[in-house]
Design a protein around this nucleic acid. Sequence first.
DNA 1: CGTAATATGAGACATGGTCTCACTGCAGCG
DNA 2: CGCTGCAGTGAGACCATGTCTCATATTACG
Lengths: 169, 169
Amino acid sequence: MRHGLTAARRRAALARFERFLERRDLRLTPARAAIVEAALAQPGHFPIEALVESLRRRGIRGSKATVYRALPLLTEAGILQEAVVKGDERSYEAAVGRRHHDHLICSGCGTVVEFEYPAIEILQREVAARHGFELEGHHLQLSGRCPACRGRGAGRGGDLRQGLAEDGS
Amino acid sequence: MRHGLTAARRRAALARFERFLERRDLRLTPARAAIVEAALAQPGHFPIEALVESLRRRGIRGSKATVYRALPLLTEAGILQEAVVKGDERSYEAAVGRRHHDHLICSGCGTVVEFEYPAIEILQREVAARHGFELEGHHLQLSGRCPACRGRGAGRGGDLRQGLAEDGS
DNA sequence: CGTAATATGAGACATGGTCTCACTGCAGCG
DNA sequence: CGCTGCAGTGAGACCATGTCTCATATTACG
């Protein structure tokens, strides 16, 4: 199977979505169901465009507008979550059946590694509390060079940028 | 003074930029100098648009293109750094004479609080190392509701979203 | 059924950012 | 001291992502 999730999980997600919609007096329309299906069938991280494309390929005409309208619902329902934001376009990824995680991105080849690190989460909560904030979410993205890229090209490894903070004053 | 940095720091930054450009066989042109000046005169975080606007107000016609071209140089030189990315538009902030920090953003009013938390940084480095990555940078942004907004509207505080991870299998 | 509320699709629109290209002006040279 | 080359610049065309509008379709429900 090349889908990110089993059929059972997809069914569960759909049920969850239905419950969510009901609570909001919204309907689980064919279009929305199709979007859920298609979204969960996407591999790991995917840009919205890919989702629209995927719907189109399945013969379902899902207009861009409908998809864009549905995505916030899916995330609010906890079925998807925003993932790596790379420049302009947003990416999403399935949230069902997955633990929370953050991303490590290789600046050389673009590889994305997911990691889970509860200790960091705890500290984040601590920081928020210290400022009187009620933490709602966070976005943590580390960038660096993966093992492969480190070996390969020495690349533009920056020896520039040596901490201007020290001079002056 | 209402500038973010003292004149001394601005001079230092300019000198640094000059050195940087020289190393790259680029020139410190009037336009670039003006952009550095204007950038450092901006308050805390600023969107690119504000910078363009500021240049225009100073009588210097700095075209959008020139500014957009200069910004990567400024960041590479360590004079500016990308800051909060809010939806579409990028923000920058001065990096000179400042310690590294991350951001805490209120989802209610948009207030941005900066914080510094070395412990988190250390953990980040640890995560990267664990995956064989050489850490180059990171982007950490916490979002939540600030004290004021918590007090005020109860808002759309979500009791929805209760961890789908548990069901199914 | 009939009706009102909601959802949809197509595409117009807005916006942030990039690219093109003619032009400018400095640097090095004869 | 005027060429010449080339990086830099400015204006705006262009592009992509995402939002909004509005006419139409669907749904729930009396």
